[in-house]
Design a protein around this nucleic acid. Sequence first.
DNA 1: CGCCCGGTTGACCATCGTCAAACGTAGTGG
DNA 2: CCACTACGTTTGACGATGGTCAACCGGGCG
Lengths: 257, 257
Amino acid sequence: MSSGYTDNLPIRTPDFGNPTDALVRKFLRRDQVSAMERGALETLMEPPRRVSGGRVLTSLGERPDASTLLISGICVRMNVLRDGSRSITQLSLAGDFVDLHSLLIPQMDHAILTLTDCWVSRAPHARIRSLAERCPHLARLLWLETVIDGAIHRQWLHRMATQDALGRLAHLICETEARLAVVDLVEDDSFDFPLTQVDLADCLGLSTVHVNRTLMSLRRLQLVEWRAGRMRLLDRERLQQLAEFDPTYLRLDRAPV
Amino acid sequence: MSSGYTDNLPIRTPDFGNPTDALVRKFLRRDQVSAMERGALETLMEPPRRVSGGRVLTSLGERPDASTLLISGICVRMNVLRDGSRSITQLSLAGDFVDLHSLLIPQMDHAILTLTDCWVSRAPHARIRSLAERCPHLARLLWLETVIDGAIHRQWLHRMATQDALGRLAHLICETEARLAVVDLVEDDSFDFPLTQVDLADCLGLSTVHVNRTLMSLRRLQLVEWRAGRMRLLDRERLQQLAEFDPTYLRLDRAPV
DNA sequence: CGCCCGGTTGACCATCGTCAAACGTAGTGG
DNA sequence: CCACTACGTTTGACGATGGTCAACCGGGCG
C-alpha cells in the first residue's frame, strides 16, 4: 500500500512539448481554439512533475486546491468500500484532468492513483476560476471535459448492467483505443495498455481469474493481441461488433461549444 | 412503446411556486444565491408544461436546443443496447436538469423518459450560454450540477462492481432519500417512490425476479416498508450500514463554488 | 539462487438469470 | 354485476455466469 505523495525528479526536462498539448489536441477535435486561448491555458499550469507508478496522486477525503492535468501515463479513480473491496471508476489518459471536478466538489470521495509513471502538471483552482470568468468559451470546454467523463461513466454503467464479461472487456478496449487515438497515441491499431489483470478486474467489476479467462477468449477469437503492456486490435470490425461499441458518447465530432 | 412527445394541459396552473424553486433550494444547500441570481435563473425558463408518465422527453439521437428542468415527478436516463436490453443510468428528481449535458454534447446517446407524471420547463441553450457568460457564479453552480451527476454515476458504478443485490438496493434507497430530502420531499422518513420492480431492475442491473426476492429480504429485515409507491425507512441506521452509504459524494455541505 | 509478482488453469460453489405459473387489483366493456 | 384483460408482484425450479480457493508457471530482480 504505497501512499507516498510524489517523487519528483525536478531537474530533468520532460520529453514532450507543452504540458497542455494533449488537452488542446482533444479540444481541437471538438471545437476551435484560438492562439490566445492556448496561451491562456498554458498560464494555468504549474511546472510539470514526474510521478512514478502506483502512487497516490490525490487521496480520499483530501481537499485539493488545484486540479491535475495528466500529460502522459495512466491514472485511475479508485473507490474503496469499508471491507476493502475496490473498484476503478475511471481511466484517465494523457490530456485528461484527473480531478477537475474538485474545483466544484471540494472533498474527494475517492482516490486518484497513478498506474504507470506519469508526467503531471497542476492547475490551481483559483487560476481556473479566474480564467473561466475571463474566457467563457474555455470555461465551456473545461465543462465539456467533465460532462464527457459523465457520459463515459454512463456507458460503463450500462455495460455493467447489460453485458457479460466478454462484451465488457471488448468495450473497454474499444473505448480506450478511441480515446487514445484522439491524442495520437495509437499506431497501427496498437497502443500502450500497461494494466495488470488485477487492474482490469477492478475496472470491469470481475475477479482476476475471470478477467484472465475472458482475455483468453478474446485471444482465441483472434480479436486482440496483448503482450508486454501493448494492446493490438487484430480485427477492429468484429471487436467493435462484439462490444456493441458506438463512439457517439465520446463526442468526437466537431461542433462549437 | 409510447413515443408521443408531450400531452400538455396548457390552461391549468401548476400547484407549485416558481419553476426554479427546487433547483434554487439545492443551490442554497451548497452555496449562496443572491436575489439577482434567482431572478436571472427565472428568466431562463419557458412556461411549465405537464407531461404524463411513460413518455419520451428526449429521444436517442436527438439534438435538443434546450435543457429541461424537472419541477416535479421522476425521469430516467435510459440506455438501450441493440438486442433491446435496457438500463437506467440515472434517476432525475425534482430540481434536476434532466439533460443539462446536451448544452455541451449535442447528440443524445440515450433517451430521457418520464416515469411518473411530471411538470417540466425548458431552458433554451442560447439563454443558458448567455447567462453563464454574464454570471460566472451561476455558471459554476450549473457546472456543479453536472459534476454531481458524475459523482452519482461513479457511486452506482462502484456499487455495481462491489456490492450484491441487497447492498445495491439499500444504497439506491438511501441515496434517493438523501436527494429528495434536499428538496423537501421527505416526511417522517417516507417519500414517494413510484418505480415498478422492472424499473428498479433496470437501475440495479438485476432481473425483476431477483429485485423482488431482494425487496422481500429488505422487508423481512424490517428495514423498509414499500406500499402504494411510498417508501418508508423503518431503521435508517441499519439500512445505511447495510448499504455502506456515505453521502459525501452528494456534496450536501455548504461551501462557496 | 530464490523470491515475488503477475499470469494461467482447474475444481467447486453461489449468486443471480431464465422460464413458468399463479395471484391481486384496477380498469374496461358487455 | 360480472367477465375479461392488463399490469405488476410473488414464488418455485433449474441452470449458467462468474466468484473462490488453490496450485503452478515464468520472468525479472535482489
